[in-house]
C-alpha cells in the first residue's frame, strides 16, 4: 500500500499553498467543517462504517465520537441500502445526517434508496418533505484498488434529478462545500478523492459556504479552456503550469466545484475568449461529466468553438488493479499536457 501513498505525500509537500493565511490539510479542513456543524446544529449526526475506528475516514472523523458522543457519531452495520434509507427517513423527519463511505463503489448498493427515494421524495410529496442528507465518499485511485474499489461514479448519478453532486479540489473548497452541503435541504453527494486528502491549503476558520453551481477560475489564460473538478483538475493545473513555463501555453482552468448543478455560464464566458474546450474528469468519459459538458457546449455554444471538443476521462473499461495496467488507465499531467499541446497546435 505504499507506492502511491508516497507519491501523494510528496505531492502534498512540494506544492506550496497559494495565498496567505492559516494552512491546514484537506482532512483537517473537512474535520473542522464537521466540528463546526455538530456544535452549531443539534440535528446533525455522523454515521458510516468505521467513522469511529482508529482510521476515522482518513482522519476526517477521528476523535469526533469522543467529542460529541456515541449517539451522534456512530459506526453502522454493513448495510448500505438500509442505512441510506434510514438516513433518508431521518432527514425526512427533521434530522441532518452525514453518511460516510470509504469508497463510492459501495454507494452502488444504495442506488434504490438514492435514486428511487432520497432524490424523489421532495418532488413526490409536492414539496411537503425535504431530505437534507449528505453522503460522503472518497475515490480510491491506485494502491491496487482495482475494478470494485476505485470507481468514480458521478457520471452514473449525474442524470438523477433531485441530487446535488459536489467534487472539491482544494482544502478551502472541501470545507466550504461540506458546510454548504450540510446546510442544503436536499440530498447532496460529496465525491472526494483520496489523493487530495493530504494536500495543504489556506483555510479560514469558522463557518463559510461556497455556493453550488458556481465554478471558479483556477488559472486565466489565452489558448484554451480546461474544465474539470477534483483530482483531475489538479493534474490539469500541473500540466498547464508546466506548459506555460516551457512553451508559453496558457489556459483558463475552470473548477466546477459541483457537477450538479453545473455552471454553464462560466464555461461559455471562457470559450468566448479561447474557442477551445478540454474537459477532464476522474470518471469514465462516456456518458459522464465529460460527455455532459461537451454536449452542453455543442448544443448551446457551438458558435464559440474553433476546434473539436476534447475530453479526458477514463477509457471505456473497468479500473484495473495491477500497477502497470493502472499506468495505462489513468490520465496524468503528462497525458493531459500532450492533449493540450495537440489542441493548441491545431493537430
Amino acid at each position: 500500500m505504499l507506492w502511491d501513498e508516497k507519491l501523494v505525500e510528496e505531492n502534498a509537500k512540494t506544492k506550496n499553498p497559494l495565498g496567505e493565511g492559516r494552512v491546514i490539510t484537506y482532512t483537517q479542513a473537512l474535520q473542522e467543517a464537521l466540528v463546526l456543524k455538530l456544535k452549531q446544529d443539534s440535528r446533525v449526526f455522523l454515521l458510516g462504517q468505521g467513522v469511529d475506528d482508529p482510521g476515522g475516514m482518513f482522519g476526517v472523523t477521528r476523535g469526533l465520537k469522543e467529542m460529541f458522543g456515541a449517539k451522534r457519531v456512530f459506526d453502522t452495520p454493513v448495510s448500505e441500502e438500509g442505512m441510506t434509507g434510514i438516513c433518508t427517513g431521518a432527514a425526512m423527519t427533521g434530522m441532518r445526517p452525514v453518511y460516510f463511505h470509504n469508497r463510492p463503489d459501495f454507494l452502488l448498493l444504495a442506488f434504490n434508496q438514492l435514486v428511487n427515494h432520497a432524490s424523489k421524495i421532495h418532488y413526490m410529496d409536492a414539496g411537503k418533505t425535504s431530505v437534507p442528507l449528505v453522503i460522503w465518499s472518497a475515490i480510491g485511485r491506485g494502491w491496487g484498488s482495482g475494478p470494485q474499489h476505485s470507481q468514480a461514479i458521478q457520471g452514473l448519478l449525474l442524470s438523477v434529478p433531485g441530487l446535488k453532486i459536489v467534487m472539491p479540489s482544494t482544502p478551502y473548497d472541501a470545507k466550504g462545500l461540506l458546510l454548504g452541503a450540510i446546510e442544503d435541504n436536499n440530498p447532496v453527494i460529496i465525491i472526494e478523492h483520496r489523493w487530495l486528502m493530504k494536500q495543504q491549503g489556506v483555510v479560514p476558520e469558522g463557518i463559510y459556504t461556497i455556493p453550488f453551481g458556481k465554478g471558479v477560475y483556477r488559472r486565466r489564460g489565452e489558448h484554451l479552456t480546461i474544465v474539470g473538478t477534483s483530482q483531475t483538475l489538479q493534474l490539469a493545473l500541473a500540466a498547464i503550469d508546466q506548459l506555460k513555463a516551457e512553451e508559453g501555453i496558457t489556459a483558463d482552468v475552470i473548477d466546477l466545484r459541483t457537477v450538479k448543478p453545473l455552471d454553464e455560464a462560466i464555461i461559455f464566458e471562457s470559450l468566448a475568449k479561447t474557442g477551445k474546450l478540454l474537459v477532464v474528469d476522474t470518471g469514465w468519459a462516456m456518458g459522464g461529466v465529460c460527455a455532459e459538458v461537451g454536449c452542453l457546449v455543442a448544443e448551446k455554444a457551438f458558435h464559440l468553438l474553433k476546434a473539436p471538443i476534447r475530453r479526458i476521462g477514463l477509457p471505456d473499461a473497468p479500473s484495473p488493479a495491477g500497477y502497470t495496467l493502472e499506468q495505462f488507465y489513468y490520465p496524468t499531467d503528462v497525458t493531459i499536457a500532450q492533449t493540450i499541446k495537440e489542441m493548441v497546435r491545431g493537430k
Partner: peptide, 13 residues
C-alpha cells in the same frame, strides 16, 4: 428503511 430512519430521528431527539 425510511420508517426506520424516522424512528432513528425519534431516538436522536
Amino acid at each position: 428503511p425510511l420508517a426506520t430512519g424516522s424512528a432513528l430521528s425519534s431516538y436522536l431527539k
